[in-house]
Design a protein around this nucleic acid. Structure first.
Lengths: 299, 299
DNA sequence: CGGTAAGTTGAATCTAGTCAAGAAACGTGG
DNA sequence: CCACGTTTCTTGACTAGATTCAACTTACCG
C-alpha cells in the first residue's frame, strides 16, 4: 500500500504536469481535447477554450516499444495512427499478446491502479500516439465537469473489450476464435473508414495465435479451412471476407442465422424484448441476449 | 451515437441524483465514502465531511440477480459481503462466467461506456452491495478533487483482473487454470482476513468450469489430480491448500521454483533488472518479467 | 426417507499441440 | 537483376489433452 500513496501523489493536482514528462516525449505537433474525444468516439461539450488545451504526440517506429511492463506509470496513450501489440511476458520468456490497439484505442490503462504498466506495448508499424498524462487529464476534468465521463467511458470500453476476449477464449474453438478475430478486425477497420471486407493483417500468425491462445500452425490451419469453405480468401497477410454471415456462423451457427435475418443493429443495445432467436433448446432460457456476440454481429 | 448522448445526460451534474433511483434500491443502512474507499483498498483524503456523504446498501439473496445484461446502466456496485457471479449469456442460452466478485470488488463497470450493463450479476449467497450511482460519484469527485483517482483506480484494477484472466485462458492447460483459480481465490480470501489455505467454494464445478473455459468433468478431474498429488485436499466444496508452492509450480514450473527461492514480493513491482530467471532458451529475452504470474505468486 | 442436484470416475472420441519438412515472401548485398 | 539467407507461412503425421457420453456415488432438502 506504499505504492498506492506515491501513486496518489502523481494524481494530485499541480504536483505533476506536462512539464515533468520525459523529454523524449516532447516531439511532433500537438492535439486538442476536441481531437482526442473525436479519436475516442466520445462526445465532448462544445466549449471553445477546450480546443486550446493540447496534448503532445509521439511517434513510434516499427518494433519499438512505447512502454514496458513494470515501468512506472505516468501517462495514458491513445493511438492516432498505426497499430500496436500489447504483451505480457512471463518468467520463461514466452509472451502472450493481449491486444492489438489501433487508431482510437487506449493504452496504458492497466497501470493506473498499481502505478506500473502491466503490459508492454510494441508498435507493429510506424505509429503515432497522443500522450495523455493522467494528471493533465484530471485537471482538465476538474476544470470542465462535463468531461467527467471521458476517461470513465474509455476505461469501461477497454474493460468490455477484454471481457469479450475472455469470452472468446473460454467459449470458442480454434476456427471460432479466428473468425471472431477477423470479424472484430473487420468492424474496427470499417469504423475507421477502411474496407470492411478486404484488408492486410499487420501481425504474424505467431502473434495472432498468441492473442487467441492458439499455436501459429493452428491459426494457419483455421485460415486455410475458412479459405477452402469459400468464406474468406487468404493470401499470406491479405484477407478478403467473402461471406461475413458465414463467418459469423462459424462463431455460433444460431447467431449466424439470426444475424442474417435481423437487420444489422447499430451500436445501441435493444431496449428489451428481442428474445426473438429461433428457439431455445435449453430448459431455462430466461436471459436477455448477451452482448458478446452482438459486438461481432454488428460488423 | 445517440445512445452516447442520452448516456451523457445521465452524467450531467444535477440532472440525476440518488433521488431518482429505483425505489427498490433504497433499503438497509448507508455507507460513508470512507467505508467505500476502505472496501476498495484505495487511499482517501482524510476530510471529515466525507464521512457524511453516504451511499445506500442493497441486500441480494442467493440466486437473485442484481443487474442483467442489457439493462440500462445507472449505478456501479461494490460488494460488501457475500459472493456473486457475473455471466454473459449468448443466444443459444449457454452462459459464460466472467468473474466471481467478492467483498471489495466492483460490479457494473462494463455498462459505463455503452449505457447498458454488459453482463448479468447473480448472487451466490446472501450478499450486500453498496450502490454507487455514477452521477453521485462524479459530483463527489468534483467537490473533492483528491478523490479523482478513486474510480480510475477501481476500473484499472478490474481491467488488470480481466487481462489476467485472458492470460490464464490463453496460456494454461486445465490443471494450470484450476491451480491459478485456487491461488487467486486463496489470495483474495486472505486479503479479506480469512484463511488462505482452507476455505469452502461457493460455486459449483459447472460454474468454475464456465469461468475457466473448461467442462465440469475436467474441473473435477483437475481437482482430483491435485488432490492425489498431495498438493491440495478436496472434499466436495471444501478446499485445503497443502502445498502452495507446488500449486504455483503447476502454473509454471520455473515460476514455482523461483517463487520458493525469492522472498514473496509485495504489491510493488521491482524497478528493473530482476531478469534472474534460470536461462532463456529463446533468442531474444530482453523483456522484464511479466505481471501475470506475479499476481498469483504473491498469494 | 426419498428425490434431486452436484460431484466423481471411466472409456471412447475429437480437437489442438507437437514435430518436421517444405514452400513462399522479404531483405540484402553482390 | 538475381542469388542468398532469413523469416513467415503452409501442410502432414503423430501425440497429448480436453470433451463427450455414461454410470455411479455423495450430499442436500423437503
Amino acid at each position: 500500500m506504499t505504492a498506492a500513496m506515491s501513486h496518489y501523489d502523481a494524481l494530485d493536482f499541480g504536483t505533476i504536469d506536462r512539464g515533468t514528462l520525459p523529454a523524449q516525449e516532447h516531439e511532433g505537433a500537438n492535439v486538442s481535447v476536441r481531437d482526442l474525444t473525436r479519436l475516442l468516439h466520445i462526445d465532448c461539450p462544445d466549449e471553445a477554450w477546450l480546443a486550446r488545451t493540447a496534448f503532445a504526440l509521439r511517434r513510434v517506429r516499427e518494433g519499438e516499444s512505447l512502454v514496458r511492463a513494470g515501468d512506472k506509470f505516468h501517462s495514458l496513450y491513445v493511438v492516432r495512427s498505426g497499430c500496436f501489440k500489447t504483451v505480457y511476458t512471463d518468467l520463461s520468456g514466452s509472451e502472450q499478446v493481449l491486444g492489438f490497439p489501433m487508431s482510437g484505442d487506449l493504452m496504458g490503462a492497466d497501470g493506473i491502479d498499481s502505478g506500473h504498466y502491466g503490459s508492454t506495448a510494441i508498435s507493429l508499424d510506424t505509429s503515432e500516439v497522443v500522450i495523455v498524462p493522467l494528471a493533465s487529464l484530471a485537471r482538465l476534468v476538474y476544470e470542465c465537469p462535463r468531461l467527467e465521463a471521458l476517461l470513465y467511458r474509455a476505461l469501461s470500453r477497454e474493460l468490455v473489450r477484454v471481457q469479450n476476449m475472455a469470452w472468446t477464449l473460454g467459449t470458442l474453438g480454434a476456427e471460432g476464435r479466428v473468425a471472431a478475430f477477423l470479424l472484430t478486425l473487420s468492424a474496427r477497420l470499417g469504423a475507421l473508414g477502411y474496407s470492411r471486407c478486404s484488408f492486410n493483417l499487420r501481425m504474424t500468425r505467431q502473434e495472432i495465435g498468441s492473442y487467441l491462445g492458439l499455436k501459429l500452425e493452428t491459426v494457419s490451419r483455421a485460415l486455410s479451412a475458412l479459405n477452402s469453405s469459400r468464406i474468406i480468401e487468404v493470401h499470406q497477410r491479405s484477407i478478403d471476407i467473402v461471406d461475413a454471415d458465414a463467418l459469423r456462423g462459424v462463431i455460433d451457427p444460431a447467431a449466424g442465422i439470426a444475424a442474417s435475418i435481423a437487420p444489422p443493429l447499430g451500436s445501441a443495445v435493444p431496449e428489451s424484448g428481442a428474445g426473438n432467436g429461433k428457439r431455445a433448446r435449453k430448459p431455462r432460457p430466461p436471459f436477455q441476449p448477451g452482448i458478446a456476440w452482438q459486438q461481432l454481429a454488428a460488423a
